[in-house]
Amino acid sequence: MSGEIAQAFAQAKARGEGVLVAYAMAGDPDLPRSVDVFAALVEGGADVLELGVAFSDPIADGPVIQGAAERALKAGSTLKRVLDEVVPAVRQRCPQTPLVIMTYVNVIMAMGEARYAKLARERGVSGTILPDLPPEESASLRATFDAEGLDLIPLCAPTTPPARAQAIAKEGRGFVYCVSVSGVTGMRAELPPDLSQRLELVRSAAPVPVVAGFGISTAEQARTLSAHADGVVVGSALVRAAHTEGPAAAKALCADIKRGLRR
């Protein structure tokens, strides 16, 4: 276990807050300016940063993050460059904030699982989320990550049967990412009514904190969910704000959502 993620959750809890995991795409609009976006998210109150690394075929992502991935690829973003250029710069500006990489398994395979785990850890990455790597395919990668102290953060879906959800939760590292809706990433006006029960079920089985993500874009949604989860992930809404209005808008949205997470 990396330790940094657990510490961030513990500190938020001590302040009486739910954790805000804030996502942006590394390399959107280009590598240096995406560092400004990440720093703005932390200034706005993000407790954990999720750095998207673009993949050409993002099957779990909706149009907003697909667009960000296309821009990042055009700007020359690669996993290697994110680890060499974005991660160290963000670490320097936000030394207290744990960093998590979110990408697709093919990007990790192309670098080599062991090489990635070692390099990511050296650069100061705490965890990794791979939305196309379900538990059946993850055993060897998790062992490789464990050996380096890099957390492989699992996902749990609304369609996951209860026993399977508990099994996923038990193997959690860093935190468990509960996908709130059946679908791709992106903002939703309404979240499913049975989400709170699902979160409590996963929470009861997980040795690590549990967060809800996909579809969350407002302080009100964050407030509702924080009663049943240790935090929320916000992605598309922040990516859109940063893209259309710049880092300051993303910072303001973070601050607004963070208000919803204060108990």
Binding site: P131, L133, E136, A157, V179
Partner: peptide, 13 residues
């Protein structure tokens, strides 16, 4: 081979 898909699809597969 294998099954590299979002968790949401695993039960359907």
């Amino acid at each position: 081979g294998g099954r590299y898909v979002p968790e949401t699809l695993v039960p359907a597969l």
